[in-house]
Amino acid sequence: MTPIIATDAATHCADWRLKIEPLNEHEETAIAAQIHHYPQPQAAAIEALKIVQQQQGWVSDGKVKAIAQRLQMSPDEVDSVATFYNKIYRQPVGTTVISICDSVSCWIMGYQGLAQAVTQELNIALGETTPDGAITLLPTPCLGACDHAPVAMVDDQLTRQLTPASLILLVRRAQEQSS
């Protein structure tokens, strides 16, 4: 019998669906609830990304694909949205994320001192995560708390009127908590 004709089809892209990291139950229900608010599922893309991030700390490639499948989009389309926004992390972050406001009022009120102190303390640059995965340092645009400048967010918590010393205290507390 004539054998199967050889084609080069094997070099074709692997189906992205095979590399999905499935949504967990909570993600699934939370996303479904959001889809409800809009005339088309794609409109819930940002919420879906935030939901996954809340659960996982960040949004992995596999989760991007899972969201894509859920919202009838391609992973590329989801990633296009995900990479636009500051607050969607497409790389793993530390247990604690410290976002230091680097905008104008905080800058006037001593941001540079804070940045210097904390990068020295942790021995990482802004934008990096400590090797033990405890802390990620991020510069962040104006946090809308200029009346308390300089400020930072430690995860969801706003901390005000920081000094290098008080920030380092916060950092150390976060380190302890993660270990």
Binding site: N86, Y89, L126, L138
Partner: peptide
């Protein structure tokens, strides 16, 4: 006394 700036070189984008 702001030059050279300490942070500009250190900043990295978080994607």
């Amino acid at each position: 006394g702001n030059s050279p700036k300490p942070d500009n070189g250190l900043k990295k984008e978080a994607m």
